[in-house]
């Protein structure tokens, strides 16, 4: 499970996750992901296009980080979700809690909206 951070705009960072958000993957990446997304006090676009699997622990990680950001007045938007991963997100109605966009441009538009 890998994690990369880049600038999308001055107040928005782009965080790319690569690998499997299974129990072992979450254990490896959760501390780094939380620090990378929450600490900079900016909005975050999360690229999930290279994430091929997600389980409940992965969902928990995303919800937990999004909630912390929300309390600090920042937004987190997911985009580029693989269809099978999207099925898992939809089965728990994650979209009601964290916005999900098709691509990076649409995700950035959601931040502005």
């Amino acid at each position: 499970m890998e994690l990369a951070v880049a600038d999308h705009a001055a107040d928005v960072q782009l965080v790319t996750l690569t690998g499997r958000l299974d129990a072992a993957g979450v254990e490896r990446v959760e501390t780094r992901f939380t620090a990378a997304v929450v600490a900079p006090s900016r909005h975050a676009l999360i690229d999930l296009s290279a994430v091929s699997f997600i389980g409940s622990l992965g969902l928990r990680m995303l919800i937990s980080v999004a909630r912390t950001m929300h309390r600090r007045g920042h937004k987190m938007v997911l985009f580029g979700v693989d269809p099978l991963v999207r099925g898992v997100l939809d089965s728990v109605a994650l979209n009601d809690l964290i916005p999900i966009a098709n691509d990076r441009a649409a995700a950035a538009a959601m931040l502005a909206g």
Partner: peptide, 13 residues
């Protein structure tokens, strides 16, 4: 999101 309690989703899935 504020009311969301992370966890407990495994058996739901």
């Amino acid at each position: 999101l504020d009311q969301a309690v992370p966890g407990g989703l495994g058996l739901k899935l």
